[in-house]
Amino acid sequence: MTLLELLEGPLWIASASIFVAFAAFRLIVILFTGRREAEARPAGSPFLGALRTILGHFLPWRRLLGNGKAWFVTIAGYSFHIGLFVLLLFAAPHVEFIREKIVNLPWDPIPRWGFILSAQFAFAGLITLWLRRFVDPVVRLISRPDDHVAAGLTFIVMLTGCMALGEQSAFLRGLHLGLVELWLIYFPFSSLMHTFTWPFSRGFTGAMAGRRGTRA
């Protein structure tokens, strides 16, 4: 068995299984481990508070609308995430891989220029946001090593993917796939889990605030 076959076969299955099992485990723990009931009388609706926060946090906080930093984070954040999801789910090589290994996606892949453009948006967003962690004193203080590993791994996965765009080399394809597998294994144990947990954390914060009659 060649290394590429190993990466496409057993190692793919192993890493995907670790990803699914542990991500599901964490979500179940988050959802089903109860919290002690708040005893104070509610001053507002937790449900509305949760809803408002889940949706409201898609936009910068109104009080920060005049603030360049808030706009930078919003634009770079959308640029990175939308770019990443488009290229992940709609780029031809990914659609082909997902169809072969996971599920028969019902949509057609986007043209190559769309793939490249979405990658460029994703890279521009990721690079600026990651660098900010080093040069913004406040964000530097709240950044943990995990944040850097998560950003770094994501970057290197994207970079090797971009290097394999020529689709001429089994080595580059294997390198990209191997790093994707490493990323999948790291995912459930890291801040990358925010991919799934963001509605819960926003919802929880919002519900708590809603209950107190304030806004998150």
């Binding site: 490249i116 990658a119 460029q120 890279f123 970079l159 971009c162 290097m163 394999a164 765009l165 020529g166 001429q168 080399s169 580059l172």
Partner: peptide, 9 residues
Amino acid sequence: TAAMQAHNL
């Protein structure tokens, strides 16, 4: 090929 693809992107 890796360098060229990255350079172009």
